[in-house]
Write a protein that binds this DNA or RNA. Structure first.
Lengths: 250, 250
DNA sequence: GCCTAGGCTTCCACTGAGCGGAAGGACAGG
DNA sequence: CCTGTCCTTCCGCTCAGTGGAAGCCTAGGC
């Protein structure tokens, strides 16, 4: 487009998308300079393109100058067929768990070597929960992550083992320990975490099986402690997972 | 960008956004020709730009050639600050209503002359519900819509009156009748619909007031019939709306 | 089997839309 | 007043973008 481009070959569309993708869970609002740096564009270019995105409603510029994602993009994003079938089928079962346990309930799938949270019902208890719909978290430190990892292909397990980043002092960082836990998950049919992702938060999760028996998703709850209610939570999760599996099959 | 452009002045970004905005609730998947027509672009241009959007993960091209919104855009869209505060605060109260009534529960705000659905908890009853998170529906035919319209500015009410499209034989299409109903909504503090949006679906809704007393949102439920449970549903809604108002204030 | 219609993809000559360094503001902190 | 940081505008250069035309493929009618 321009004679003096610093990165010839990059199209306008790719630059515009780079601006949109500069936003993530940790960066929901960006100043122009941050936006330009994260998108890898010169400031004037970012300024102009971001201005067009604002004009189109894809971004919004707030009074203080910071850019945030616009409602128009929210609209369009919701049209993405991200497991719509699974989410629709699972929704009532998740509600049941929530009604019974009052805990934070999650529905997640595996996305590469991460857990992708599809749904979340917030509990009322004051448990610190970092997950969010659309967030991708490490598999080795979350309940739903371990439930999915235990039934994931060998290559995925190895990829995860290669980077067991510690998030709290209780995060499992030794591959042999994680391997042993995954074995236990397969035996017990459920996975647990104890302050491995966030201090003060424990979780328990079960896999959801498709009609061919493969683990297609996981359902889990986050609670302050597992000591008291473990059995009760587990049975609620198992009933729900069974129900989802049945609905998927039929 | 090009010498032979048919619409000089239109930027690449605006064209790319036109492609994204070509998708809506009724058009979640589009063929190339449809996409081009809805975006107002020549087919070759749409083909090239859509190809770039696919390369960037904003769109996905399925095996049958149809385009759908991509997961990457879903990710970014979820970062939009669309009433995040209201939604977070209201979530537990919506769950309460759902737990008690087992009906489909909605949280909506007014967006111009339409109702914008922010949250939805699906009920298990077999009630046909057309709403969807992110959907915009007409105000005159929905419970939450009438609850919001009754407290909307005069200009908005007039704009809605100007286009009372019939959706079922029971949709209110006469401005005087709607005006009388809105008056009643203000008196009773709740709005109802009886098969005005969808045959076989009734609804009841109440406004949620902000700390300054203005109606900032509405909460409603959809049920097969209002005959039996009207009083019970209404009290559940009122308790929840009060709770949200209190949480907003504090 | 031939022909037509409709949608998808590729080609290519033309040119103005896009580029970004540089300069100019605006503002805060020292 | 000076300095640093961020935001905005300017402007000359040029190649990325454009879309009509043509070719391709498949489906359907006869």
């Amino acid at each position: 487009m321009a004679g003096n481009t610093s990165a010839p070959g990059a199209t306008v569309v790719s630059r515009a998308l780079a601006l949109l993708y500069a936003f993530d869970d940790r960066h929901r609002r960006l100043t122009l300079t941050e936006l330009a740096r994260r998108a890898g564009l010169p400031v004037p270019t970012a300024y102009r393109l971001a201005g067009e995105l604002v004009a189109g409603g894809a971004l919004v510029r707030r009074a203080d100058g910071a850019y945030v994602v616009g409602r128009r993009l929210w609209d369009v994003g919701l049209l993405a067929p991200v497991q719509t079938g699974l989410r629709r089928i699972a929704a009532p079962f998740l509600n049941d768990i929530h009604a019974v346990t009052r805990a934070t309930v999650h529905l997640a799938i595996r996305d590469g070597a991460k857990v992708l949270y599809l749904e979340r019902l917030s509990g009322r208890a004051s448990v610190p929960v970092v997950s969010r719909v659309g967030a991708r978290l490490p598999m080795h430190a979350t309940g739903v992550g371990k439930a999915l990892l235990a039934h994931a292909p060998y290559e995925v397990q190895e990829a995860v083992m290669a980077d067991l980043a510690p998030l709290t002092p209780y995060t499992i960082t030794r591959p042999d320990r994680l391997r042993a836990q995954l074995e236990q998950v397969r035996r017990d049919g459920c996975a647990t975490t104890v302050e491995e992702m966030t201090l003060g938060a424990c979780s328990i999760a079960v896999p959801v099986r498709g009609r061919d028996g493969e683990a297609v998703a996981a359902i889990g709850v986050v609670v302050p402690t597992l000591k008291r209610d473990r059995a009760r939570l587990l049975s609620a999760l198992q009933v729900a997972a069974q129900g989802v599996t049945r609905s998927l099959g039929g």
